[in-house]
Write a protein that binds this DNA or RNA. Structure first.
Lengths: 228, 228
DNA sequence: AGGATGCTTCGGTTACGATCGAAGTATGAA
DNA sequence: TTCATACTTCGATCGTAACCGAAGCATCCT
């Protein structure tokens, strides 16, 4: 009966609340130090250290030393996707750590998901790109159309250069707050980076939420209308 | 820092070896009794009973009573996908329960993945359908073409009736042995069912492997050539 | 009715791992 | 060099949950 890979090891790694909180914090995409992750997990530095080494030997985390700091990130996008999909499942089963509170709205509106935009704004952007004919949606799959390629060029994104990377250009990622898909992949990353370069949006420290400037929000809503 | 859904609960449920083995056994798609699952988990019936009730209240399993038996299945396809994607991640990180042994080949060649065909044959079938122009592949997404709809009709599969179901017609599912995609969704299920009806293939008891009859294998290879 | 099978609940044991205090190592700053 | 910061390792405690034996229900068969 012992066939195939052992999912229990990975499950157990994610199954500890402290570790789960650290992983969730890393879904924010930035590299975090052991001390920051200890705070995220609500534990002391010593305990966090042992957790982090377990996560790393388990292949879920990558680290790089920089001076006397040690920065941790999720090992790769596959891990990020797993975490997000578990969040989706957990949300649909009602496993919530807290009731939806007054602090939530900012997070539901726009937040970081590993390296791209999620939340209401993320979902709206993808819907709009599909409605505008910039992206073809077939089943779960997404592909940039010829029209989309030129549209994106106008915004300042060179799709052809993104294509050369090994990472998939488009990916749909299920949103746990909206329960609908938003845009991931290298294009999703490039779009968010583009917004931040232009000063339309910026990340809040210590949180996954992304806030748009009044002007940035106007431009965003103009660029991605709800009904094409 | 406590934002979003709690992945630790789900992780912990999957993180116990006995429970993980039971879940993996259910990836085979058939409904299993508590006694069978106890054997799959390598534990006594009493212990299995408590595990199963935890898995059920956690939303990962569904059960239905039938006489004095209690049949368990994975709660829905989302759970099946999560388990499979964890297997993929575990395989890529080298978390194996055993070295690839002589008993493996049958499993790698053709096996059940929830309700559709996986393994070498599953991957080949999807590749072939794409090469033949029966299925369009865009990114991760799959869609049946007009040509595909008539091709499948010839085999004895009515695509239009499948479309009416709420479940997605095509889905790509990552194979942990091949590390490539095979066909899931209602079409994937229908195709496997079709092969079994025709007597081309049958499931082995107590295992996830699917064996083709000599004639069935000939027909399968003819129907799904490698290079179109 | 009596007996067998499938499963659950209870009680008590046991083992594993999460936790932190304290001490040890590495890197940078003064 | 000396001190401070960032982190790891050691050692010991403690809680939780996995586990099984035994007993209790429920369902089916004869």
């Amino acid at each position: 009966m012992k066939e195939g890979p052992d999912i229990a090891q990975i499950g157990a790694l994610i199954g500890d609340p402290a570790r789960a909180n650290m992983l969730a914090a890393l879904t924010g995409g930035r590299a975090l130090t052991a001390t920051e992750l200890a705070a995220a997990g609500g534990i002391t530095l010593q305990t966090a250290s042992t957790h982090l080494s377990k996560l790393e030997t388990g292949g879920l985390l990558a680290q790089r030393k920089q001076g006397r700091h040690r920065y941790f990130t999720l090992a790769d996008e596959a891990v990020a996707r797993l975490i997000e999909s578990m969040m989706g499942l957990a949300a649909s089963r009602g496993h919530l750590r807290h009731q939806p509170g007054p602090k939530d709205p900012a997070l539901r509106k726009a937040r970081i998901c590993y390296d791209h935009l999620a939340g209401d704004f993320g979902v709206r952007m993808l819907d709009s790109l599909v409605a505008l004919g910039s992206i073809d949606a077939i089943g779960d799959g997404l592909a940039v159309t010829a029209k989309g390629e030129s549209d994106l060029q106008c915004i300042g994104i060179d799709v052809s250069s993104l294509k050369s990377s090994r990472r998939p250009l488009c990916r749909s990622c299920l949103d746990w707050s909206e329960r609908r898909a938003h845009l991931a992949g290298s294009l999703g990353k490039a779009l968010l980076a583009n917004f931040m370069e232009k000063g339309w949006a910026r990340r809040m420290p210590e949180s996954r939420s992304v806030v748009f400037s009044p002007e940035g929000e106007r431009q965003f809503l103009r660029l991605f209308p709800l009904e094409a």
